[in-house]
C-alpha cells in the first residue's frame, strides 16, 4: 500500500515536471514566434522605423515575461510545501500519533497565514487552520504528558527510597505499603503542580484546547450558514439581546414600583402596598 502511494506521488511529481517543461517550451516558442521572420535588417528595410522599435520592445517584454514564468514554475512546487515527501507523511497513519504534524506544519502555516482573498478558499483555510491548531494542541498535550511522566517517575524513585530506608518503621501489611505509595506520590505530584513549568504547560494546554474548539466552531458555522441553520455565534447574539432586554425590564419594573409606592425603600411599606393591591408582586419569569 505504501509503495503504491509513493509510486503515485512520484508519478504526480513527474507529471508536474513535464507540465512545467511544456509551459516553458510554449512561452519560448511564443516569444520566438513574434520575432520577425527575416534578418533584422529586412525588418528595418520593409517597416517604418516606429513600428520596428515597437516590435523590439514587445519582443523584449515577452522575453522578460517568459523568464519570469520559468522562474515561477521552478519555485511554485517547493514554496507550496506540498512536496511528495510531505504528502507521503499525510498518508502515513503512523505519523499521526506523533505530536504535531511534522513536515506538514510549514505547509499548513504557509497556506493559513498567506494573504486572504475575498471569495476563494475560505472554508479550506478554516479547515487547515483547525488542523494547525489541532497540531499545536497535540504538542501541548505531549508536553503535559511528558512533564507528568517525569513526576510519576520521580514518585516511584522516592517510593523505593522510602521503603528501602531502614530507619523507617517496618511495613507488615499490603495496606501499609499502599499508604506509603499514596503519601509519596501525593507529595511529589503536589510539588510538581506548583512548579512554574507545570503551570505554564497546563496554561498552554488549556489555551490551545480553547483555540481548537473555537476554530472547529468556525467550520461548523460555515456549514450551518450553507444550510441557513442558526450558528452558535448567532444564538449567542440572540441570547445577549434577551439578556439585555431582561435587565432593562427589571430596571423599568423596579423604577415603576418605586414610583407607585411612596416609600419603596421600606419593605414594610411595600408589603402594605402589596396587600392594598390585593396581590403579591410577581416579577416576570417568576412562579411566585
Amino acid at each position: 500500500m505504501t509503495n503504491k502511494t509513493i509510486s503515485w506521488m512520484d508519478q504526480a511529481g513527474d507529471l508536474y515536471k513535464q507540465w512545467a517543461d511544456q509551459q516553458r517550451a510554449l512561452f519560448r516558442s511564443m516569444s520566438l514566434g513574434i520575432a520577425p521572420p527575416g534578418p533584422p535588417g529586412a525588418l528595418t528595410a520593409n517597416t517604418p522605423a516606429g513600428a520596428s522599435e515597437g516590435m523590439r520592445q514587445a519582443q523584449a517584454l515577452w522575453q522578460s515575461s517568459m523568464e519570469q514564468w520559468v522562474t515561477l514554475a521552478q519555485q511554485a512546487q517547493p514554496q507550496s510545501g506540498l512536496t511528495a515527501e510531505s504528502l507521503k507523511t499525510l498518508f502515513d497513519p503512523s505519523q499521526w500519533a506523533q505530536a504535531g504534524l511534522g513536515p506538514l506544519d510549514a505547509a499548513i502555516e504557509h497556506l493559513v497565514e498567506g494573504p486572504s482573498y475575498a471569495t476563494l478558499w475560505t472554508l479550506d483555510r478554516k479547515i487547515l487552520k483547525a488542523q494547525k491548531l489541532r497540531g499545536e494542541w497535540a504538542k501541548d498535550l505531549a508536553a503535559f504528558q511528558l512533564l507528568m511522566h517525569g513526576a510519576w517517575s520521580e514518585a516511584v524513585k522516592r517510593f523505593f527510597q522510602e521503603i528501602n530506608d531502614t530507619q523507617g518503621a517496618p511495613i507488615t501489611t499490603w495496606r501499609e505499603l499502599i499508604d506509603v505509595w499514596i503519601k509519596t506520590a501525593n507529595e511529589t505530584l503536589l510539588a510538581t503542580h506548583r512548579t512554574p513549568e507545570f503551570l505554564e504547560v497546563q496554561r498552554r494546554l488549556t489555551r490551545s484546547g480553547a483555540e481548537c474548539r473555537l476554530q472547529e466552531r468556525e467550520i461548523a458555522e460555515a456549514f450551518c450558514e450553507m444550510q441557513q441553520t442558526p450558528t452558535r455565534t448567532e444564538m449567542d447574539e440572540v441570547q445577549r439581546e434577551v439578556y439585555d432586554l431582561r435587565r432593562r425590564l427589571r430596571v423599568l419594573e423596579r423604577s415603576g414600583i418605586a414610583a407607585a409606592i411612596p416609600h419603596a425603600a421600606s419593605p414594610r411599606a411595600a408589603k402594605k402596598a402589596d396587600r392594598s393591591r390585593g396581590a403579591r408582586r410577581t416579577p416576570p419569569n417568576s412562579t411566585a
Binding site: L190, A191, R194, Q202, R203, R207, A210, E211, R213, L214
Partner: peptide
Amino acid sequence: RTDHGFINLWTRSLTPEDVDRLIEANG
C-alpha cells in the same frame, strides 16, 4: 503550605486573554 491554594496559583498562571478565550470557547 504546598497543599493549599492551588486554584489561586492556577488562575494566576492564566493570562486574562486565556480566561476570555476559555469562556468564549465554552460559553
